[in-house]
Design a protein around this nucleic acid. Structure first.
Length: 415
DNA sequence: TCTGGGGTCCTAGGACCC
DNA sequence: TCTGGGGTCCTAGGACCC
C-alpha cells in the first residue's frame, strides 16, 4: 500500500436523477423520481423527504406529494456513465469500475504529468461538470476503503482529501455504517454492544468482534477500522454469476404461474451466456413467498449448459421440488434464477458426444446441440430486429414486467 | 414505506475421499 | 464396540453492495 493518498473514489451524485434534470431543465431543483410503479432513482430534493430507490411509487408519493415522476433515458445513462469514467481514464489506466456511476483510480505515478492526486480530483470534477453537466463527488485517500468513505462524506458535489497523517482522526469519528460491509444487521449487532463509531469498533477486542460478527467479517472490519486495507485496484473484473429475477405481486404457487416466468428469466440469462461464450454448471432458484421470506434450491450439473431450454427445465424442476417441500406456502411474490460456476469455453457447436444421458442439458449431446443451434438462430434474429422480435413466452408475462429491460441491463456486470 | 433488480462474499453442515 | 483428521465439493441461507 501507498504511504501517500493516491487512491481516488469517484461517484456520480444521484446519477439517474441528475441525468434527467440535465436533460429536462424544468426538473432542476425539484424532487423527482425515475420510474413509476417503483422508484428506480431519486434526486437529492426527493431524498430529503425520505424517498429512496426500490420504494413503491405510492409510498414515495405519500412521503413527498409534489414528487415528479419521469421515465428514464436509459441509453443516456450508459453513455454519460461511460463518458465520466473516460474522464477519469484520461489520467490513469489503473481504474476499477464498480458500477455504471462509480469507479476507483490509482493515480500514484501521475504526479509529474497531471499534478497531485488532489489536483487530479479537482480536474476530473471540473471536466465532468463542464463537459457532461453532471455533479460528481470524489474521495482521495491512502486506501480504497477510506477513499470510498471520503467520497460519501464529500457528497453532494464535493471533494474530500484525507491526509494520511490524520486519517484515523478522520475515520474514527464517523458512524460504523459508513464502512463498506456494515449494513442494518451488523449495525444493530454493534449497537447492542455500545459500538456506534468506527473508532469504538477499532478499539473493541478483535476476538469479541469475531465472535459477534463471525470470523471473516469481524476480522475484516477490525482491519478496516484501522485503515488497514490491502486491496489494490483491480482493472478487469468479470462476473462470477449471472441472474435474473421478477417480482410477481401475489400469485398462486402453481406451475401455470411459475413456468412461463422461469422460461423468460432463463432466456434472459442464457442469452447473455451465449453472447459471451460462457457456460454455467450451477443453477440456483429462489422463491419468495407472500410474507417476504424466501427459500432457494441449487443444483450443480456434471456438464455445463447455456441453452435456454436446459436452463428453463432445470429451473422448473428445482422450483417444483422447492414448492413440494413447502406445501403450506400457496402464494409466491418473486422468482429468481442464478447461473454460476461459469466456464469460459464457448458452447460446443459440433463437438464429441459426452458419455451422458441425452436429456438435452449437455451441450455436447445431440439434443443439446439442436437446442443450442435454435437458440443461436433466435439470438441472431433478436440482434437484427430487436429483443422483442421473437421470444419465449413473451406474451404470457403480460404487464408483469414492472422494471424495463433497459434498466435491468444497466445493472448487469460484464460476463 | 410492505419492499426492484443484478451482483458478491461468508458460514455451517453434510457427503465423500484419503 | 468405538473411532482420527484434513481437504474438497456442494447446498442453503444470510448479509451486503450498487
Amino acid at each position: 500500500m501507498h504511504s501517500t493518498a493516491s487512491i481516488l473514489h469517484a461517484d456520480l451524485d444521484a446519477f439517474y436523477a441528475s441525468v434527467e434534470q440535465l436533460l429536462q431543465p424544468a426538473l432542476r431543483g425539484k424532487p423527482i423520481a425515475v420510474g413509476g410503479g417503483v422508484v428506480l432513482a431519486a434526486s437529492y430534493e426527493a431524498r430529503a423527504f425520505g424517498v429512496k430507490s426500490g420504494m413503491s411509487g405510492r409510498a414515495a408519493r405519500e412521503l413527498c406529494p409534489e414528487l415528479i415522476f419521469t421515465g428514464g433515458h436509459f441509453s443516456e445513462y450508459e453513455r454519460l456513465g461511460d463518458a465520466a469514467i473516460d474522464v477519469l481514464a484520461s489520467f490513469t489506466p489503473d481504474i476499477e469500475r464498480i458500477s455504471i456511476d462509480e469507479a476507483f483510480a490509482d493515480v500514484s505515478g501521475c504526479e509529474a504529468l497531471f499534478g497531485s492526486p488532489e489536483e487530479i480530483a479537482r480536474k476530473v470534477r471540473r471536466r465532468v461538470r463542464d463537459k457532461l453537466g453532471l455533479p460528481i463527488s470524489i474521495g482521495v485517500a491512502r486506501t480504497k476503503h477510506l477513499a470510498k468513505i471520503a467520497s460519501q462524506v464529500a457528497k453532494p458535489d464535493g471533494l474530500v482529501l484525507v491526509d494520511p497523517a490524520t486519517e484515523l482522526m478522520f475515520l474514527h469519528d464517523l458512524p460504523v455504517d459508513l464502512m463498506w460491509g456494515v449494513g442494518p444487521a451488523t449495525k444493530a449487532k454493534l449497537a447492542a454492544r455500545g459500538i456506534e463509531t468506527i473508532g469504538e469498533l477499532a478499539h473493541a477486542s478483535p476476538q469479541a468482534m469475531e465472535r459477534v460478527l463471525g470470523k471473516a467479517v469481524g476480522r475484516k472490519l477490525t482491519q478496516l477500522a484501522w485503515n488497514r486495507d490491502p486491496r489494490a485496484i483491480q482493472t478487469d473484473r468479470r462476473a462470477i454469476s449471472a441472474g435474473a429475477q421478477s417480482a410477481l405481486g401475489k400469485r398462486p404457487a402453481t406451475e401455470t404461474v411459475f413456468a412461463p416466468v422461469l422460461q423468460h428469466l432463463a432466456d434472459r440469462i442464457a442469452r447473455r451466456l451465449r453472447a459471451k461464450d460462457r457456460l454455467a454448471r450451477t443453477v440456483t432458484v429462489r422463491v419468495r413467498f407472500a410474507d417476504m421470506s424466501s427459500v432457494s434450491r441449487a443444483i450443480t450439473l456434471p456438464a455445463p449448459i447455456c441453452s435456454t431450454a436446459a436452463l428453463t427445465e432445470i429451473a422448473i424442476d428445482l422450483v417444483r421440488g422447492l414448492l413440494a417441500d413447502h406445501p403450506d406456502e400457496r402464494t409466491i411474490s418473486l422468482l429468481a434464477i442464478s447461473a454460476s460456476h461459469l466456464g469460459l469455453e464457448p458452447c460446443p457447436q459440433l463437438e464429441l458426444p459426452f458419455a451422458l444421458a441425452d436429456d438435452g442439458r449437455r451441450p455436447g449431446t445431440k439434443k443439446g446441440r439442436l437446442r443450442e443451434r435454435a437458440d443461436r438462430a433466435l439470438d441472431a434474429i433478436r440482434e437484427r430486429f430487436g429483443q422483442e422480435a421473437v421470444g419465449y413466452a413473451s406474451g404470457a408475462l403480460g404487464g408483469l414486467r414492472s422494471v424495463p429491460d433497459a434498466f435491468r441491463e444497466l445493472a448487469e456486470k460484464e460476463l
